[in-house]
C-alpha cells in the first residue's frame, strides 16, 4: 500500500490487490464509472429530445408559454421563476452535501449528520416541486382543439392573449355521459371526456367574433401564427378532438411528442432524485449509528455525494434544454 508501482519487473505485488493506479478506492472508482454510464443514458434521452425538436423546429411549443405557474399566483404569467427556484434548491442541497463530505474528512460526526439531513430535506423539496409542476402540466390551463391532421389549434383574443375554452364555449343541450365500468359490461370504459365537445367549442367560436385561432407554426418573429377570422373558421372545420392538459397521447401545448419527452426525461430524473434521497437516508442513519466513526473514514458519504452531485448536474442540463433553449 502507498508505494507507487511503476513496473511489474521491479515489484511483484502488482496483482495482489491494494494498488490504486487511479488514486481512488475501488468503490469510488466504480461510482465514477456508474456515473459515466448513467450520464450517457441521459445524454441519449436529451439528444433524442433534440432530434424530435429539430425535426419539428417550426412547430415546437415555446417553453415560456407552457410553464407559467407559480404557487399562490393564480392566473399570473410567471414563466421560469418556479423552475429557477427548483434549480436553486438542488444546487443548495449539493452544497450541503459537499459540506458533509468536507466535515467527514475532519471526522466531525455531528456536522456530517446535520449536513446530510439538510441535503435530504432539499431533495424532498425538489421532488415535491416536481410533482406540483407535473400536476400543472397534466391539468393544463387553456385547452385546445386537435385537428384531423394531428395539429393543435389554440385560441387567442384580438390582442393575442390566450383564451380559455371555458371563456367562449357554448353549452349545447345534448350532454354526453361518461361511460364507466359500473354502467356497462365490466371491461367497457372510455378515456375521460373533455369538459366541452368539439361542437360546443366550434359553436362558441362562431358566436364570438373577437376570438382567433393560433396555430403551432412559428413565424419569423419567433411567435406562433395567429390566423385571421376567415382562416380560423376554415381551419376549425378540421376540428376532431378537444384537448385539455397533457397525457401520453396528446397535449394542448403542441406537438404530441412534447409531453412524452417531458414526462420521460423529468420523470427519469425525478426518479434519480428519489433514489438519491433513499440512499442518503441510509447513509445518514449509518452516520448517526457511528458506523463510519468506527471505521475512521467517511468515504461512503463521499460516494453518495458523487451520486447526488451527478443528479444535480443532470438537472442543470434538463433545465437548459426544457425551459431555456
Amino acid at each position: 500500500m502507498g508505494a507507487t508501482v511503476t513496473t511489474t519487473a521491479t515489484n511483484g505485488k502488482t496483482w495482489d490487490g491494494g494498488n490504486e493506479p487511479m488514486g481512488a478506492s475501488y468503490g469510488k472508482l466504480m461510482m465514477w464509472f456508474f456515473i459515466v454510464s448513467d450520464a450517457l443514458t441521459f445524454s441519449g434521452f436529451i439528444a433524442a429530445y433534440g432530434f424530435s425538436r429539430f425535426k419539428f423546429i417550426e412547430t415546437w411549443p415555446i417553453a415560456d408559454e407552457v410553464f407559467t405557474h407559480f404557487p399562490f399566483l393564480h392566473g399570473v404569467d410567471a414563466p421560469m421563476y418556479y423552475v429557477a427556484f427548483m434549480t436553486f434548491v438542488l444546487i443548495f442541497s449539493s452544497v450541503t452535501m459537499v459540506l458533509a463530505v468536507d466535515a467527514g474528512h475532519k471526522l466531525q460526526k455531528q456536522k456530517v449528520a446535520i449536513y446530510m439531513a439538510l441535503t435530504i430535506v432539499g431533495g424532498m423539496i425538489f421532488v415535491g416541486s416536481q410533482a406540483w409542476e407535473w400536476k400543472n402540466f397534466i391539468q393544463g390551463s387553456h385547452g385546445a382543439i386537435e385537428t384531423k391532421g394531428g395539429s393543435i389549434l389554440q385560441f387567442v383574443n384580438r390582442e393575442g392573449e390566450r383564451v380559455t375554452l371555458a371563456d367562449f364555449a357554448k353549452h349545447l343541450p345534448k350532454d354526453r355521459a361518461q361511460l364507466e365500468r359500473k354502467d356497462g359490461v365490466w371491461f367497457m370504459s372510455e378515456p375521460t371526456l373533455a369538459t366541452y365537445s368539439v361542437e360546443e367549442v366550434v359553436e362558441g367560436f362562431k358566436a364570438n367574433p373577437d376570438i382567433l385561432v393560433r396555430t403551432e407554426v412559428i413565424t419569423k418573429d419567433k411567435k406562433k401564427t395567429v390566423l385571421s377570422r376567415e382562416q380560423s373558421l376554415e381551419r376549425l372545420k378540421e376540428a376532431k378532438l378537444v384537448v385539455e392538459g397533457a397525457n401520453m397521447y396528446r397535449n394542448e401545448y403542441g406537438h404530441k411528442t412534447f409531453a412524452n419527452f417531458f414526462f420521460f426525461i423529468t420523470g427519469f430524473h425525478g426518479f434519480h432524485v428519489f433514489s438519491g434521497i433513499i440512499i442518503n437516508i441510509i447513509i445518514f442513519l449509518n452516520v448517526i449509528a457511528g458506523t463510519y466513526e468506527k471505521r475512521r473514514s467517511y468515504e461512503m458519504v463521499e460516494k453518495v455525494g458523487l451520486y447526488w452531485h451527478f443528479v444535480d448536474l443532470v438537472w442543470v442540463f434538463v433545465f437548459t434544454f426544457f425551459y431555456l433553449v
Partner: peptide
C-alpha cells in the same frame, strides 16, 4: 464547476 469543485475532480489524478 459542479464536477470540478463539488465532485472534487480537481483533486483526482489525471488518468481518472
Amino acid at each position: 464547476y459542479i464536477t470540478w469543485a463539488f465532485m472534487h475532480m480537481e483533486g483526482e489524478k489525471s488518468n481518472l
